[in-house]
Amino acid sequence: MKSVLPILTVVAVIVALWYAAAVWMNAQWVYDQAARADTEVTLAEVIPQTLAQERPVLPAPHQVAAELWKSVVGQKVTSKRSLIYHGWITLSATLLGFAIGTGLGILLAVGIIHNRAMDLSVMPWAIASQTIPILAIAPMIIVVMNSVGLSGLLPKAVISAYLSFFPVVVGMVKGLRSPDAMQLDLLRTYNASRGETFWKLRLPASMPYLFASLKVGVAASLVGAIVGELPTGAVAGLGARLLSGSYYGQTVQIWAALFAAAIAAAALVGIIGAIQRVTLRRMGMAR
């Protein structure tokens, strides 16, 4: 628990800076209002007003917290105003996309390890795929899949998989190649087959690499799912909340949705971290 104090210190500093920034950025509006009403405002009057605007340039932390609370706890989960409702829609696309991306990534890595043609050809394409801006390709995926009758969850999951397969490929190729020449020679002296080498040596040796990749991949999945919700016209999901918030200048709503996304990402990474600890301990690799 020694780490609590430094963490709280950093959080306190960030919150303080945030409040200062909110006062500074929202003050102009207060002064403009006062000028229009032909009144004078003192600094003492300005500060409370900057922190309680309905559409501030930068909402204050307590406004975001209140909005989060209201839209998470204060609504029925089936309500369109509930962040739980929107969060779940995004999360389900994230998880499906993450599963597809991870499966695809592992398959590609296995292919790259065992097939020379794939070794030489797949990686450049995988790297190229990640240099294309996701914002450019997401609408096309939605449109193309919609034209063949696929809409809703799957297109979003595909975009999410598109982002998450890459770290898994890179990590798994490295992990599956991590056994050194001596360990491979040892299996050669047993006349072990490729399959036995894979299951008994390469796969277990790659586990620490896999989990590191999964953590990056799941966060990328969430980004993919949110981006996938933007071109569909803001129906449902955290992306939709972000989009409708920006349509109507609801900055507090945008920030609340952003925090909901960040909390979801942190939770997902945390869950994978927990699975990692349990798995590695059961494998005897954690000390």
Partner: peptide, 26 residues
Amino acid sequence: YGYVFQAAGLYPWRTIAGNIRLPLEI
């Protein structure tokens, strides 16, 4: 033949018995 390398090269995810069982499984 059995081959012993310069480093023990035991699999960290297997117990000592598990490591010795490796060639027997294969």
